[in-house]
Each structure stands twice: as structure tokens, then as C-alpha cells.
Design a protein around this nucleic acid. Structure first.
Lengths: 234, 234
DNA sequence: GTCTATAACCGGATAGAC
DNA sequence: GTCTATCCGGTTATAGAC
């Protein structure tokens, strides 16, 4: 305990290890007891630090969730890799991405409800529309861009620029439904994904039809208008 | 104070008045300080009751929000009456309903953020998908049904049954955007309403087109499938 | 049995010493 | 960077008043 203990394989900053311990303890406890039932005191104890020290690293309980959020996203990207490589049609590729999402988040169903509660708060960095979460949003859209790019379905150029973002928003809606889904094995959400992916595919194919051009233009114009999100204060 | 005080004009139960006072005090404080900054102790004091007494009537702070929720809905219905009577086209009628909504909720913008935070929690009775709130959902849909009924736009029969509910969901989405809207006078949301109402109107008109029949059927089938919401436990 | 009040409890968050 | 000691506010237990 008294040795200097030089940094061997870990060139990380001083308390970086402590931070990791706290995150690990929190995720473990969240998984086991859910978000609400896990107190900061429990996290601190499990991580072997004091309550105040835990707050030194994470200014709020919500902030601990951000770590979770990122972990889930990375797991989703990883899980989707193989199915995406196998699926060729747009329908199958979208279905693969959504089904992977569902599989990845399932273990957290209980505690995701509370996570979402925080995510809906505009002041929370967990909120999908919050600037701090912009990178996660962009990465989420990127996954859908990949799903689109690998398919043989033709997408009108104007829509192609907006579609990944639209699909990411769609996936948030599915997650919202999933949170409230109390059917066994989340069958309701599974069904919903099947149905809506089919609808999305139909819609994308219809989008090339000249009849729908005005409608498509409306959507694209709206999306472009919404993009910049000037972060004026209240 | 010692008189029996027979019920003159108020046949209300004993503590009904107290309850009213608490709600009134809470709404006032919410409007002024926002939800989070308003403590139950403040509410109790403003209502002239003890903290414990406030909890006797409202088991949680969230429950006070339910009262607010209903008040807002009734104000919305009232505010929409005149504009609805004046507007003839579907576009104008939807726009009227949405603009009234926006006007009615504007004074609560600051505290609605927190309200939504609660509303997103599946366990909260504020949640739009929660059975306890089913009546509010139904009334919300009814308002859109009225907007549809009074217009001269033709809606395919299968879709007509689902459209009010769809439009109510749409309005929830607009509110979600509004909560995050930091533009002056909520211009962003106003613009969004204009744009999306135009799109919705376009979509409803297109829905009669034979080309879109399969897509329409998909939507209707999905809506019907989602309806029963069996409330199985986790 | 209906209502009201006081005194805790608990957990998120903070202040300030070391 | 880490701790201890508090604060603060939602919530609950419980005792009594009408």
C-alpha cells in the first residue's frame, strides 16, 4: 500500500481509474436494481469511494447514465455488423438494425424507463435533442445511413440526405414504445418493428413516385429548416 | 367557527375546499417558479395548510400535475371552439386546433419541461399511454375528430376511424418539440405547426389515391393492432 | 371516520477541511 | 482527489383534533 506503484500498463490520469470503478459499479447496480432503486451511496460504496468523491467525478446521477448510453450505442453498432453484412434489401437491413437495437437494450428494460424520464428533460444532457448528445445522435444516424447505403433500393437524392436522421428519430419512437411495452418478451415491440419497418420500406419506395413529389419536398424542406437548432436561451 | 355551518351554496364534501385551495396554490406557484423550484412546503404554506395535509390530499407532487393537465385540456377545448366554428377547410381547422393548443400551454413553458419528464415515466399516471390517462387521451382525440368532421375533406372510411388518434399523437409530438423550443416567442414551434399541418393535410388528401391504398392499409392495420393495449404486468 | 399537524426518514446534492 | 458533515426537499409515520 505504501509503494509508489508506477504506472505500468495504464498511462491514464490519476483518478481515471477511480472514475472507471464508479461507472462499472453504477452499471452493475443499475442492471441489478434499476436506476431509481440504486442510490448514489450504494454506487459510492460499491466503488470503494465516499459519496462526495463519487460526486466529484459525476456531478449528478443522470450523468452516470450518459456512460450507459454510450455503452449501449457501441454495443448496438457491434451487434448490427454481422446481420448488416448478410442482409441485402432495404427492408431486411432496417429490420436487422432495429432488431439488434431491441436485443441490446432488453437487459435494461426495467431501468430504461427512468433513463427515459431523464432523457425527456430538456436540461438533461441525455436528451436526444441536447447539444451534448449531438455526437450520439450523429452516430445513430450514421448506422442508418449504412443500412441505407448497402441496400439496392433507390432513394431520391434530396430525401437521401435527410433519411438517416429521420430513421434515427423513428428508432427513438420505437424505444419509447418499448419502454412502455409490458407484453411477454416484448413481443409487442417486436411486432411493431416488423410492421413499421415494412411501412417505412413501402414509404421510401413510394417516395420516388412523381405523384408524391410535392409531399416529399415538404418533408425535406422541413427537415432542412429544423437542422440548425439555434441554442438561444429561454 | 363553532357554528355547524350548514352547506349553503356548496354541497361539496368537507375537505373539498381545502383540496381546491391546494391545487390553486400549486398551479399559481408552478406558473411563477416552475415545477422543480416549487416545493411541497411552499404549496402547503400558500394554501394555508400543513405539509402533511397537502400530502393527505395529493399523495405525490406528480399528482398535483394531473390537475394541471386536465385544466389545460379544458382550456384548450374552450379556446378552440370559436376558431373551429370559423374555419372550414381541414387545413385551417387543424391549424386552429394546434395554434390554440400552443397558446394555451405557452404560460407553462418553463414548468412543462418537468411535467414531461414525469409524463415519460411509464409508472406515472401523467404518461399519455397510461390507462389512468385514457380519458384525457380520448378527449384529445375527440377534439381532432371534431376538427375532421367539420371539414369538407373526404377521408377514406378505414382511415377515418384511426385519424383522430393519430392526430392526437401528432400533437403530442409537437408538444415535445415545443418543450425544447428556445426560440423567441416559440416561433420555431409555430413554424413547425404551419409546416406539419400543411403536410398532414396533403397526406390526408393523398390517402384517397388508389396508389397509396396498400400503404394506407398498413397504417390502419397497425393502429387497430395497437389499440387494445393489454395491461400485462412486467 | 375524516381531517390536520408535527416530527421524522431518506436520498440527491453541496461545502469545506485535509 | 478524497473525505466528513450538512443541507434540502420529497415522502412517510404517527399522533391527535374535529
Amino acid at each position: 500500500m505504501a509503494e509508489p506503484d508506477p504506472p505500468a500498463t495504464e498511462p491514464v490520469g490519476k483518478g481515471e481509474r477511480t472514475k472507471q470503478r464508479i461507472v462499472a459499479a453504477a452499471l452493475e447496480l443499475f442492471r441489478e436494481h434499476g436506476y431509481e432503486a440504486t442510490t448514489m451511496r450504494m454506487v459510492a460504496e460499491a466503488a470503494g469511494v465516499s459519496l462526495g468523491n463519487a460526486y466529484y467525478y459525476f456531478a449528478s446521477k443522470d450523468l452516470l447514465l450518459q456512460a450507459f448510453y454510450r455503452e449501449v450505442h457501441e454495443a448496438h453498432v457491434a451487434a448490427a455488423r454481422a446481420p448488416l453484412a448478410a442482409a441485402k434489401t432495404l427492408h431486411d437491413r432496417l429490420l436487422a438494425v432495429m432488431q439488434c437495437k431491441l436485443a441490446v437494450i432488453e437487459p435494461y428494460h426495467r431501468f430504461s424507463a427512468l433513463m427515459f424520464r431523464s432523457a425527456a428533460d430538456p436540461a438533461s444532457p441525455l436528451n436526444p435533442f441536447h447539444p451534448d448528445g449531438a455526437d450520439i445522435a450523429a452516430e445513430g444516424a450514421a448506422l442508418f445511413a449504412e443500412a441505407l447505403a448497402g441496400s439496392n433500393t433507390k432513394v431520391p437524392k434530396d430525401l437521401a440526405a435527410e433519411l438517416p436522421g429521420l430513421l434515427w428519430t423513428y428508432s427513438l419512437g420505437i424505444v419509447l414504445y418499448w419502454i412502455h411495452d409490458r407484453t411477454p418478451q416484448r413481443q409487442g415491440t417486436a411486432k411493431l418493428i416488423e410492421r413499421t419497418v415494412a411501412m417505412v420500406t413501402t414509404a421510401v419506395k413510394l417516395a420516388s413516385n412523381p405523384l408524391l413529389r410535392p409531399f416529399r419536398k415538404q418533408i425535406v424542406a422541413l427537415m432542412q429548416e429544423l437542422r440548425p437548432t439555434p441554442a438561444a436561451r429561454d
